Simulated assay, not measured.
Amino acid sequence: MSDSNTTDFTNPSTFILLGIPGLEAAHIWISIPFCAMYTIAMLGNFTILFIIKTEPSLHEPMFYFLCMLAITDLVMSTSTIPKMLSIFWFNSREISFSACLTQMYFIHCFSAMESGILVAMAFDRYVAICHPLRHSAILTNSAVAKIGLAVVMRSGIITLPYPFLVRRYPYCRTNIIPHFYCGHMAVVKLACADIRINSYYGLFNLFSVIGVDVFFIAVSYTQILRAIFRLPTKDAQLKTFGTCISHLCAISALYIPDLVSSLIQRFGHYVPLHFLILITSVYQLVPPMIPPIIYGMRTMQIRGRLLQLFTHKDT
């Protein structure tokens, strides 16, 4: 074995990201839909932010939470996709150790943040449907700000151990990461040390964030469905449930790819590596792209303002 493969280095100066191993010849072609989805996500989320900022009728709790979701999606996708495209287009595979840890923190922090915002949006739907007369009294601007701050603090604090745990390991095998970004376990697997504490903390993070959030979303929608079924007419039930469709689509876009990716990684031992990475890339691209499209199509105020922007003519 060569010296370069056996030399110990506690903190490697750089890692090498391979992109999608086994599909190097197709990187240019794969980049086309990825770039298109990233562009749609960026334009869609910036448009949502602009419309909500400029339209006074949208200054409500649901749309404040949608702004938080849009900002989170922008940061989460931008933390990975530009580097992935630079690998595909320019073969720019190197990433410094510090940049790798920073990327890792942003990916996991803003993923947890997105999940927390979806819980806040579920709470907003619960109050709006189950306690409509008290909605404005419960979800004041101050309450929305406090909820947003709590989501940010929870995500930031619970993700903070990741880079510190990774930094303390020696990396003596290789500095090559068979992926297009620095995920926590992808980096830790390169360490020549006992990494059980990272595995345990990763599982704790998964259950304490995603598990708890899914539980609270399920509780909220159980109460929402009970309230809907108590409405007197079918039309009233469908109209009320229709106000939840956009939020349910956003939930599905986040949790379904995450669930599929987690199941395949844990149980799909015979699944090709390139397929695993493609599934992971869906998790990075789809959640930021779906909410602007769904809310843009289904929310009358946003749709009307968007049409007004595109059809406005100077007189």
Rank of each mutant, 00 (worst) to 15 (best):
P21C: 10
P21A: 10
P21M: 12
P21V: 10
G22N: 04
G22D: 05
E24Y: 12
E24C: 07
A25S: 09
A25C: 02
A25W: 03
A26K: 14
H27R: 09
H27M: 13
H27L: 06
I28Q: 07
I28G: 00
W29S: 10
W29L: 14
W29Y: 15
W29V: 15
I30M: 01
I30F: 00
I30P: 00
S31A: 15
S31F: 11
S31T: 12
S31I: 08
S31C: 06
I32K: 12
P33E: 04
P33T: 10
P33Y: 07
F34W: 11
F34K: 11
C35K: 08
A36S: 14
M37L: 15
M37R: 11
Y38T: 13
Y38N: 12
Y38M: 14
T39I: 15
I40Y: 05
A41T: 14
M42R: 12
L43S: 11
G44D: 13
G44C: 14
N45D: 10
N45Q: 10
F46M: 05
F46I: 08
F46Q: 04
T47F: 03
I48Q: 04
I48E: 04
L49N: 10
L49D: 08
L49F: 10
L49K: 11
F50G: 03
F50P: 05
F50H: 15
I51F: 02
T54M: 02
T54F: 01
T54H: 04
E55S: 15
E55V: 12
E55W: 05
S57Q: 06
L58E: 06
L58A: 06
H59C: 06
E60I: 13
P61C: 10
P61T: 12
F63G: 00
F63K: 06
Y64E: 01
Y64I: 00
L66D: 00
L66E: 00
C67M: 03
M68W: 13
M68S: 12
L69A: 03
L69S: 05
L69V: 03
A70Q: 10
I71G: 01
I71D: 00
T72I: 09
T72R: 07
T72M: 05
D73V: 01
D73Q: 13
D73R: 09
L74P: 02
V75W: 04
V75C: 02
V75K: 05
S77D: 07
T78V: 07
T78E: 06
S79A: 15
T80P: 03
T80K: 06
T80G: 01
P82C: 05
P82A: 02
K83V: 06
M84G: 07
M84N: 09
L85N: 06
L85G: 03
L85H: 08
I87C: 01
I87R: 03
F88I: 09
F88D: 03
F88N: 07
